[in-house]
């Protein structure tokens, strides 16, 4: 499933995360992670984002995760929503 448009989900409030998705033509998934708890959870956040991207079946997207200390369930929900919004037909 191809990313059709840019989307965002979440916020930059404390304990939340802002996920931004934008389409790319080469079919790859590029994920970038910023986090206030990067030192401890950076790799974990990245793997959650990779899993969520795979589960969504999305193809060709740049995914920017800006984490403000979100719980993992919040992170998953934000990723899911961002992918849904990116692939929704208008």
């Amino acid at each position: 499933m191809k990313a059709l448009r840019s989307s965002v989900a979440g916020s930059l409030e404390s304990s939340d995360v802002l996920v931004s998705v934008s389409p790319r033509d080469d079919g790859n998934i590029e994920i970038s992670v910023e986090s206030i708890v990067f030192r401890q959870f950076g790799p974990r956040i990245r793997s959650v984002a990779e899993e969520a991207a795979a589960a969504s079946g999305i193809e060709g997207a740049t995914v920017a995760v800006n984490d403000r200390g979100a719980l993992e369930c919040t992170l998953r929900a934000r990723l899911e929503t961002a992918f849904e919004r990116a692939t929704e037909a208008r």
Binding site: V37, F41, R68, G69, A70
Partner: peptide, 26 residues
């Protein structure tokens, strides 16, 4: 947003244990 990190200040501490609050929350 302007956060503590933008002012070169240490992160906010946990109410209970004094560790960075975001770690305890997560």
């Amino acid at each position: 947003t302007v956060g503590r990190e933008d002012l070169s200040l240490p992160p906010r501490r946990c109410l209970l244990c004094g560790r960075p609050a975001a770690e305890c929350t997560r």
